[in-house]
Design a protein around this nucleic acid. Structure first.
Length: 262
DNA sequence: GACGATGTTGGCAC
DNA sequence: GGTGCCAACATCGT
């Protein structure tokens, strides 16, 4: 589900319900989502006050008056500020005013506490909406395929499968194109495409592919703007030829063989 | 019912 | 530092 625009949307929707609230109870029930001693984690959280909720890459950082609660939604994670406890609800945070639920059928997501900024967050590359063109170009100097590089969170933080495919299409770059051989002009096109697409998606509340919703249960609408992702066999919006789907870096990769050159 | 695919990441072998 | 492959897990479509 969640790439940068979806996580940003979740953060914006959950923030006003959390900041300033105190955690009075935490019920954690998945060894995958909350590895280690869950009882000890719950105990550590009780009594803490939430100071801020921010996004870094695809991570949600909840700053407490002692340490950080870092949430990654994995493929199917959801944070909800209301609703019932269901089969795949693996976190229930009772607040002095309200509740925060974590729901994650596949349990690829994680909720972890750390005294400082989480090491997984510390390792992330720059934010795509903040990086300068100069720095972006400098970071392209790697012997790898563009699709793989865009998925690498140490290159840029927050781009996933959907936005990698959409950005490459918008810039007219083949997913297998070599990163280090990208021309100056095409590098700038890609830099601008990533920014434009992520920003536009945030405006539309992200992409709701299967059942993605924000913390208040609202769907996003950027999926209707997808030009290649999930459009295998459909006509390309630019040339009318068929969009193709292949496998790159073990991930389904959608592109237009006519509009995207290596 | 079996099989393959799904928005993510990490570990392993090479 | 790369790539390729597999792993975690549940659900849905063919």
């Amino acid at each position: 589900m969640p790439e940068l625009p979806e996580v940003e949307t979740v953060v914006r929707s959950v923030r006003p319900h959390l900041v300033g609230k105190r955690i009075v109870a935490a019920d954690l029930t998945s060894p995958h989502v909350t590895p280690g001693n869950r009882g000890a984690l719950a105990k550590r959280l009780v009594g803490r006050t939430i100071q801020s909720v921010t996004r870094r890459g695809k991570f949600i950082q909840i700053a407490l008056d002692a340490g950080f609660l870092t949430v990654h939604l994995g493929m199917t994670g959801k944070l909800l500020i209301s609703g019932a406890v269901e089969t795949h609800t693996y976190g229930v945070f009772t607040l002095d005013d309200g509740v925060l639920l974590y729901h994650d059928p596949r349990q690829f997501g994680t909720i972890e506490w750390s005294p400082q900024v989480h090491p997984r967050v510390a390792r992330l590359g720059p934010e795509p909406l903040e990086i300068t063109l100069e720095e972006f170009r400098a970071r392209l100097k790697r012997k790898t395929k563009m699709k793989s590089l865009l998925l690498n969170q140490t290159f840029l933080a927050g781009v996933g499968n959907i936005y990698a495919d959409e950005s490459l299409f918008a810039a007219g770059i083949h997913p297998l194109a070599s990163a280090e051989k990208l021309s100056k002009v095409r590098a700038e096109k890609l830099w601008a495409a990533i920014r434009g697409i992520l920003a536009h998606s945030i405006e539309l509340g992200g992409s709701s592919i299967s059942d993605y919703v924000d913390a208040e249960g609202k769907k996003g609408w950027f999926q209707v703007e997808h030009r290649v992702y999930g459009r295998d066999g459909e006509a390309c919006a630019q040339c009318g030829g068929p969009i193709r789907k292949t496998l790159v870096a073990q991930r389904g990769t959608h592109f237009c063989p006519v509009c995207q050159k290596r």
